[in-house]
Amino acid sequence: MSTIRFEKVVKEFAGMVRPALNGIDLTVDSGQFIVLLGPSGCGKTTLLKMVNRLHEPTSGDILIDDQSIYNGMDVIHLRRKIGYVIQQTGLFPHMTVEENISIVPNLMKWPEEKTKSRVDELLDMVALPPNEFRERYPAQMSGGQQQRVGVARALAGDPDLILMDEPFGAIDAITRTDLQDSLLKLQRQLRKTILFVTHDVDEALRLADKIAILREGQLVQYGTPLQILTQPNDDFVSELVGADDIVRQLGQIRVETIMEPLLDGGPIKQTIYQDESLRVALSDLVKSKQDFLTVVDSGKQPLGTITYDNIRNSVG
């Protein structure tokens, strides 16, 4: 369990005209995947790095589980309880994959056996076979594999809260989609509270439970991807997310976010995976000549249904 509350957070950097963050109020519920989105210089990374106190606010407060992270909380202790993934992976080049992942468990003085099995468990989780990857050095892996290790390392100490600072920013488009899929799956199992910074709108729409849009140090809108696409607060948000392009919207919204939950068994027709986009759903509906599709999870278990009406009502 980890809720985060930002209260009137202001950050001024010396020599800058306007504050990097100007009175941010934001509440993040436990287990939610929150994306901080905005153009460069909007303050999203600064906000993220305040949670593990790499930056200190000029004024305001940040509370984790209703406890201020500034009053009497040891900063080293705080950081060890928060997973952290950064863009250039920040993997330690002189350490093997196993050593990299063991960092936080070792800092927390876990027994050796527990750490070892945790490393294997995590490597399995991020789809890197332990026997093949445990002993590798970062330089012996592709960018995508490195970032999988980065994610595994952040999860190592089993933190409730994970901060991700443009983790897939430097990775090619195809691998990025792969990593996003894996992260979604992982999050479905683990239900961590995730703060994820990106300037990539598609990535935000794909991953987020809720998106916080920042502009010039201010929070412009905070809502689900659907809300942001269909009810943008102003022209800035509308333009940023391309809200007037319906086809694009359909391509970004996941089926599970608008499906109708399955009440009883009912007949199972053609199925669609919960992470597919509405665009795929629409296409499948047309092709299959059915009235609805059955939404399933990765284990092919039915979760709900989706119809033409659901899709029509969801878009602006």
């Binding site: 790095k49 309880k81 952290y84 950064i86």
Partner: peptide, 15 residues
């Protein structure tokens, strides 16, 4: 040393 490496070390709670 890449700045990201030191930032990761610090962010993970190394003294």
């Amino acid at each position: 040393i890449e700045p990201g490496i030191m930032e990761a070390a610090q962010g993970m709670g190394m003294t």
